[in-house]
Design a protein around this nucleic acid. Structure first.
Lengths: 337, 337
DNA sequence: TGCATTTGCTAAATGCTTTTAGCAGGGGGA
DNA sequence: TCCCCCTGCTAAAAGCATTTAGCAAATGCA
């Protein structure tokens, strides 16, 4: 019922040439000495038959499959992390590659299986993506294809794509200054261990470092530093409520948008308006940020750009880690000057 | 430098048998008459060499690649839609398949390319996923592999996986009744065209139908029906504000969580508390729903389960559309009785 | 013992493309 | 005229696993 696949031999036959000729012409080899007419005939034949090369056969011969694997711990636990995938997907498509997505839940056994499954399929490259930036576990298997780390690092594979958190940290402080705020700033989400880079992620440590550096450069100090372990809305809410009992900040600098969300809730309860009474600024550009009233000004995690860059690095040549700029997303939670 | 791949021939040689024997033993053919010792020797040889079959060669021969393609319009525009991917990924992994993810942005040209790219790679099945449930455009190409529609429908491919919106619609009303609310309910997000199934999605039309049916069964009527085209927080906020000027509802039934989010904002501004003054209930189980204070009770879109089911249908045998139950996710936005 | 099965295994073909090695014929130089 | 080189093309091998067809030895049955 289903028509048999059109093969290269069919094309060659129709063109009246050998498969060798057809292959060379269709793959666009530059050094060939085939005539212009031969080119024309082969292309015409391929087009009229609707020829599509058999990727498996080609992969068997060339060990290239025009596909890459995207191996991540979690696809979407932090919800905008899908931006990583989206960016990678777009870049892969442009390069006419296809992307295998594999999820490991961070479990070593599944990591191993994922890498094997990918390698078995002769992928041309591996991307290890971490949903929260951190040192990534890479299984100790022989990996003989280009590999890049996305939103994470690995001692074994030096090519990585990370957000430029240090610069982002500086920016948020600079942005506060531009808005005329140089004191009365509360830091929400501070955590000593994280800051020391002991836990969670070194990139967040760099975010802190950038903030500290810019504060120092501007001769500023925080009114208070509110510490918490998890950065969920509930924590932001509680901490903000607590701080409002004793003091009245001019601004709250939140370490992520979910904390900011909680802060908004506490501010609304206290009948304080953003940004007139209290300004809020944050990190991530979570989808949430646009839902808040007023919209939350935040330093965005450039996930889509990062995903894209990872694929470009993989398919091009690269050996150095890449830092992607974190844009400041202007909404309405800082006063206009 | 890189060691050459170990092939089946290597395994056979080490085992002292033919590649035929090795192949039959490793692929676990049932009808074989090879001896127990032969089995043992081949397995031992394969293990000691770390043999992994070359998937390309196998695909070339068998036309099976142990991979499926997940072709979607948008990966994550609605953010929890990644649940579809996550569920599919998990099921694929269990079936030892690998998943190609392709994004088309809903553009016909990219759809065609995506299908071709997938077919070229001999995928064993196609999933067409739509981020908002609707009739999906499937390119008019010969597709000779099993295909299932996920969160959408197609005249050409009858196998689909959809949320059971009709039942979900009934449930939300039943849940309201259980909470002791039988009047003073405002419907937020009504839209005549949508309800008639003319636009957007028939599944949302079914959601309406379920709601209407349950209302009628309980002899209830809405206090008001607030119409809007897009279901974003801003609209929920505006409409709720407006309705609060003229009346004081007992409950707001929102068509999605983002509308509910806006409603919360308006209620907070009006100093009305949830659920004591006004109860809120909604649809989707957006991540948002857990961030709100109090948490939003909502009829969940079972995306993960849907993705999983799609893969199971693809790899098993199935011919009928599947309706997946929408769970009611209890949080705190309805009064306890 | 003689013949038919069964058992246990293998040679070789197959799937489709890429690539190496090389052929036939024509032209140019000496 | 002879030799070499270039042009335009092709035959055949290689890449690796699956599968068909079939062989040799052992066993069963009469």
């Amino acid at each position: 019922m289903t028509k048999k696949r059109v093969t290269l031999a069919d094309v060659a036959r129709l063109a009246g040439l050998s498969t060798t000729a057809a292959s060379m012409i269709l793959t666009g080899r530059p050094d060939t000495r085939l005539s212009v007419e031969a080119h024309a005939k082969v292309h015409a034949a391929a087009a009229s038959l609707g020829y599509r090369p058999n990727v498996a056969a080609r992969a068997l011969r060339t060990d290239k499959s025009r596909s890459i694997a995207f191996i991540s711990d979690y696809v979407a636990t932090t919800r905008f992390a899908s931006g990583l995938i989206r960016g990678a997907l777009a870049a892969a498509e442009e390069a006419k590659h296809v992307m295998l997505v594999l999820e490991t839940g961070g479990e070593p056994a599944r990591e191993i299986q994922a890498v094997e499954a990918a390698l078995d399929r002769q992928v041309d490259g591996l991307i290890f993506a971490a949903m929260r930036a951190r040192e990534v576990f890479v299984p100790d298997l022989p990996i003989n294809v280009p590999t890049v780390m996305l939103n994470g690092t690995s001692a074994r594979f030096p090519v990585s794509v990370l957000p430029d958190e240090y610069r982002g940290g500086q920016r948020v402080v600079e942005r506060l200054l531009e808005a005329g705020i140089s004191d009365g700033v509360v830091l929400l989400g501070h955590n000593a261990e994280v800051e020391a880079g002991l836990f969670r992620s070194e990139t967040i440590a760099r975010r802190f470092a950038g903030i500290r550096a810019a504060m120092k450069a501007a001769d500023m100090a925080f009114l208070a530093e509110l510490s918490c372990w998890n950065w969920e809305p509930g924590h932001g809410y509680e901490l903000t409520r607590k701080v409002l009992k004793s003091t009245r900040p001019r601004a709250i600098l939140c370490l992520n948008d979910r904390l900011a969300f909680g802060a908004y809730q506490a501010l609304a309860e206290a009948r304080l308006s953003v940004p007139e009474d209290v300004a809020v600024v944050s990190f991530d550009n979570d989808e949430l940020a646009s839902y808040l009233r007023p919209g939350l000004t935040t330093i965005g995690l450039p996930h889509e750009e990062m995903g894209r860059r990872a694929v470009e690095l993989l398919l091009g040549e690269a050996s150095a880690p890449q830092l992607i700029e974190m844009p400041v997303i202007e909404r309405g939670s800082l006063p206009r000057v």
